[in-house]
């Protein structure tokens, strides 16, 4: 065996470091514990769906990953940037982490006073210090990717909810994130408009984007995600390959939840 082959075999056999590593994450609001010792990993290119009843802590967990909510304790490592929440991380570290994670919100959160193009270009100019023309060129590519380059000069209010969410996806992709975080991206949309968004997300997953998706779309969770995590009362009650978890949940609580959402 040549030295090169040996090195290659060695690297294949070594456990791959996950792209996202969350350990011992805790978060309380006053006396209410919202997240209780959460641990999980997400590998490069993996799609993880987080499902569970309302108030189970899904969105808070997602928001803790990019420190929109500051966890009380625990560690988050994202593509080499590690933050220990218990050590009161500085702003620089938090900004570094956020630059690696694109986030898409339920309520889109596009900036209403900027055109669609300006929305997508803003962070490229401010965070990546791209020139206006570079940023706009990249924005047009991304808008084209989500099928909305013709809306570039419009203001967001002139776009449908589905279009706004696709623009929000393009905006989040503009920083070349390592992972995309989706917080119930279709919950504010009617089913037809939700489908446009899901189709863009499906394409992203096929292109190898690492994604963590908080969703109520059971079909998406089952068909697109690699792993499913079910949460209840701030804890992970079930976690594993999506087909297995969705078809054969082990805990009574998870069975009850899946039964309820499927019977809807």
């Amino acid at each position: 065996m040549s030295g090169e082959q040996a090195l290659s075999t060695l690297s294949e056999n070594m456990p791959k470091q996950p792209l996202v590593h969350v350990s011992e994450l805790k978060k309380s609001f006053g006396s209410l514990t919202v997240l209780d010792r959460i641990d999980f990993d997400v590998a490069q290119g993996e799609v993880l769906a987080i499902i569970g009843p309302s108030g189970s802590g899904k969105s808070t967990l997602l928001r803790c990953i990019n420190f929109l909510e500051t966890p009380d304790e625990g560690r988050i490592r994202l593509a080499g940037v590690e933050i220990d929440a218990g050590r009161h991380p500085g702003q620089k570290q938090v900004l570094q982490l956020r630059r690696l994670a694109g986030m898409v919100f339920q309520s889109f959160n596009l900036f209403p006073h900027m055109t669609v193009l300006e929305n997508v270009s803003l962070a490229q100019k401010r965070v990546l210090t791209r020139s206006q023309s570079e940023a706009d060129a990249r924005s047009m590519e991304l808008l084209d990717r989500v099928g909305l380059s013709d809306k570039a000069r419009e203001y967001p209010y002139r776009c449908s909810g589905g279009q706004q969410q696709r623009i929000a996806i393009a905006r989040a992709l503009a920083l070349n994130p390592k992972v995309m975080l989706f917080d119930e991206p279709t919950s504010a949309l009617d089913p037809e408009l939700g489908l446009e968004v899901l189709s863009v997300m499906r394409e992203l997953a096929q292109d190898g984007m690492t994604m963590i998706v908080v969703t109520h779309e059971m079909h998406f969770a089952e068909s697109v995600s690699d792993h499913v995590m079910i949460m209840a009362d701030g804890r992970i009650i079930e976690y594993g390959p999506s087909a297995e978890i969705m078809r054969n949940p082990q805990s009574a609580r998870a069975q009850r939840f899946l039964h309820a959402v499927r019977d809807r």
Partner: peptide, 23 residues
């Protein structure tokens, strides 16, 4: 102003001062 505006800008990695100036 909807709190989502600040969150949307912060999630993009904008510095808090820029969140104020731009958004």
């Amino acid at each position: 102003i909807h709190s989502g505006q600040m969150e949307g800008a912060s999630a993009l990695g904008l510095h808090p001062v820029r969140v104020w100036i731009d958004v």
